[in-house]
């Protein structure tokens, strides 16, 4: 059972959290600026996007690629476990605070362990949206129009992942 000692010094309780928040904010700002000028999308698996993505498992895709991506998009693999190579990329994405978006086609996709570890989920099927929201909440889920152009799809991916706690529209 997790029962971790926590740093209770002034540095541990005030300085380090503030530094981490600053670091995260800095990364978010950098990613936002970069995504406005030259958005970079990484991918794991065959993602059904009209946008060009960087295949992160492709030969020659070296270390450091993940940190330069604005978003990593994934599809559910055939393997019922998370493939080892994907896991290492997901760990790298976690370390660099890069959002990870799983494209979900069916309810069965939500049973894959990937659904438990990504930051966001999108579906091309509007009728699936409520199922996704029940699973991961309104702030982490959205529809991704499969017929939209690459600019719109890129915008949809960044719009979903950009803000941590957005104010709810029309509440």
């Amino acid at each position: 059972m997790p029962d971790k000692p926590v740093d209770t010094t002034w540095v541990g309780t005030r300085v380090l959290p503030a530094a981490r928040r600053l670091k995260r904010a800095g990364r978010q700002l950098g990613r936002r600026a970069r995504s406005a000028v030259a958005p970079r999308l990484g991918s794991l698996g065959a993602v059904p996007l009209n946008v060009t993505t960087i295949g992160l498992t492709a030969a020659g895709s070296g270390s450091g690629q993940v940190g330069r991506c604005g978003v990593v998009v994934l599809s559910v693999p055939k393997d019922p476990q998370i493939p080892a190579q994907w896991r290492k990329i997901l760990i790298e994405a976690e370390q660099h605070s890069v959002p990870t978006v799983l494209i979900v086609d069916s309810v069965q996709d939500l049973e894959h362990p990937l659904a438990a570890v990504v930051t966001h989920l999108m579906t091309p099927e509007p009728t699936m949206l409520q199922t996704l929201r029940d699973f991961a909440g309104a702030e982490r889920t959205a529809v991704l129009d499969p017929l939209a152009g690459k600019r719109e799809q890129t915008h949809a991916l960044f719009a979903l992942t950009r803000v941590h706690t957005p104010v709810e529209p029309n509440a």
Binding site: R20, K23, E94, Q95
Partner: peptide, 10 residues
């Protein structure tokens, strides 16, 4: 814990 940088998940 060794690998955690920032906690960006909701």
């Amino acid at each position: 814990d060794d690998l955690t940088g920032t906690r960006h998940h909701k």
